[in-house]
Amino acid sequence: MNTEGPVIKVEGLTVRYGDNTVLDNVSFEVRAGEIFVIMGGSGCGKSTLLKQIIGIETPAEGRIWINGTDTTELDDMELRKIHMGIGMLFQSSALFGSMTIGENVSLPLAEFTGLPADDIESIVKMKLGMVELAGYDNHFPSELSGGMKKRAGIARAMALDPAMLFLDEPSAGLDPVTSAELDVLIKKLNEGIGTTMVIVTHELETIFNISHRIIMLDREARGIIAEGDPRKLRTDSDDPRVTDFFNRRVTEKKNEGMTT
């Protein structure tokens, strides 16, 4: 992991849907070559935050820099250039239903590289092999299981070996073994290519084994309630919301709420 300074900088980000403020004045940085995890309870705004960072939704307030460029001020053409260096796995996979898995992965390769078809094909096979989907290139997304779609989405996100990968719950729907294999993949890509990873996950294994830093969002706080090394936070934090999360505990308050 190198320490070149932030590749992503979020400052004073506020996101509203109508009257509902989801994120309020959120600031943080992601450094180059980091495995950065965004965690927090369901509905606290993790997916929203990812979409904001990659610029497909515009913030109500605040600024976001990617590689030093303020993306909140860019027009569509300039944003597209930034998007070419980014891979994103959406929470719902968002595979193109009318294309086979192979075509889904080859789409950016064919569009942006000008490689001959057989080279593209072997890169596609390689990527599918990396996510254990070898042989599924001619299947359609509707013919795959939920976890397989997730993995195909990861293969598509890393088709161009982007410098930054955004993964929204990559291990949701995966068995522990495949999930652990995915962690290995993420770690190797991160160490070997230096890919910066921004991952939304609830998987404690992933968080403790491969992440460098985390932020934890909270729905009531509408922002970050903890930031730093998860291994330290687990033991050192005195915020019950944080320690509960790491230790899979339920607080008294929530228990009462459930029974009434």
Binding site: G102, S122, K125, M126, L128, G129, M130, A134, G135, Y136, D137, N138, H139, E143
Partner: peptide
């Protein structure tokens, strides 16, 4: 996986 035949 590089030479894996397509299942479909």
């Amino acid at each position: 996986s590089l030479s894996a035949p397509s299942l479909a």
